[in-house]
Design a protein around this nucleic acid. Structure first.
Lengths: 229, 229
DNA sequence: ACACATTTGTGCAAAAAAGCACAAATCCTC
DNA sequence: GAGGATTTGTGCTTTTTTGCACAAATGTGT
């Protein structure tokens, strides 16, 4: 059994952070970034919890899984905690992202500031549409925009190899999503963000996260309907 | 205590479908729609589960909360089950959606086919940007596109009243999201889909669902980092 | 140096979700 | 019409997640 003392920078085994906790870390990270921008030095679990919409007890337990980075009676140091979370989540390395599907959504994603900043960089755009291939699309939010060439879907493997992309975004129509996914996986991508409204089946070891706009609306509608009793 | 027999069309109290189940119903609904389009008449829990990426046991338990709509030894009738889910989720009524923030994302959402179809209709676009107000934006996917005028943010309340919108989509920058949310709530909106990377605090009785692109990538990055041990 | 006010970290309890396994119900074949 | 092959619906178990409450640790003031 490994010692429990503050897991040093390169702990051999994973201390097993629960999935629920992982899903909340980004929110903590963002709130801490905001506080840092506002030059706030310290923050209590209560305050940070309020900013992120969780209970303070849950926040403390989540953070305790990363290590004991707070000071009792005082709170957490904003910059220090932010750094610890970013390190834990691997936001220090920067991650290369390939977006497949340069329709309205794909383009919006390419422009999206949250992608460009904080560790993520869109390095390649791919589409099957002949009329799009070869055109240039602006990537990144204002500040550091880059123009990227849209590559042919048939070059997907080469593009991934050349750009060293490790994260794949599927923003294609539902019909082509599975095929694209298969090719991403074959090209070595093991983490996929899927915006197409279908379930992607992938081999073990590959992670898929799904963002489904229509589903979210449907869930809202369900609850909305219940309210109107 | 209410009888447990098949909750009839207008059951007085909610049979309490768990949140986890609700979040999966849209996936079932979509898979069933696909099957229906392919003219498939029946489907087993095993098959539908495979299409949606859940276990067959979980699927059956989820569906059992809606009622006993399958036939043992046979399976489920595609059209019938699809209808039951759509009824349960209120997809028969059509829901009017107002989108606040007509940037890249807002426009992509307006175009998005999944919104226009199946019960949802974008009825209003609102933005604070003077250069956008008064311009027209195409809404809906190919087939039935509509041009919508972009209204001024200051007219938000009127627009909501006139269009009878019940669902609000926040696609503004983080800075303005909370203000917009407050105004949506004040105008009577009680279901909000939030794409801005901040937590919205809303009074009780208002539902907010958050879609956060950067968070999703960060979660993927976390797991990706762990793989590379 | 000592009591006191804070605020974290965490053991334990409760609730929610997921998984298992099988009885009950249906269809099909002979 | 009886037996066998399916497939649903569900009771029970296990796991995960959340919530509570308080001891432990720190800072403060006198």
């Amino acid at each position: 059994m490994p010692s429990k003392v503050s897991s040093s920078s390169k702990d051999g085994n994973s201390p097993k952070i629960s999935e629920a906790t992982v899903s909340r870390l980004p929110a903590y990270y963002r709130a801490l970034s905001q506080l840092a921008d506002a030059a706030q030095v310290r923050v209590s679990s209560e305050e940070l919890a309020a900013l992120t919409g969780v209970s303070s007890a849950m926040l403390r337990k989540d953070l305790s899984h990363l290590g004991s980075y707070g000071t009792r009676g005082v709170g957490y140091e904003v910059e220090f905690l932010r750094y610890q979370i970013s390190r834990e989540m691997g936001l220090n390395n920067d991650w290369s992202v390939v977006i497949v599907g340069v329709g309205n959504l794909g383009r919006a994603l390419a422009h999206y500031g949250g992608f460009g900043s904080r560790g993520f960089r869109v390095v390649a755009l791919v589409d099957a549409d002949q009329t799009l291939i070869g055109t240039k699309v602006k990537c990144g939010a204002e500040g550091k925009t880059v123009e990227l060439l849209v590559h042919a879907l048939s070059d997907l493997e080469d593009v991934i190899k050349e750009t060293n992309a490790r994260l794949g975004v599927v923003a294609t129509p539902a019909e082509s999503a599975q095929v694209v996914s298969d090719r991403l996986v074959k090209a070595g991508i093991r983490s996929i963000l899927n915006f197409a409204p279908v379930h992607l089946s992938v081999p073990e070891g590959v992670d898929v996260r799904k963002v489904d706009l229509a589903s979210e609306l449907q869930i809202l509608a369900f609850h909305e309907q219940r309210k109107a009793v």
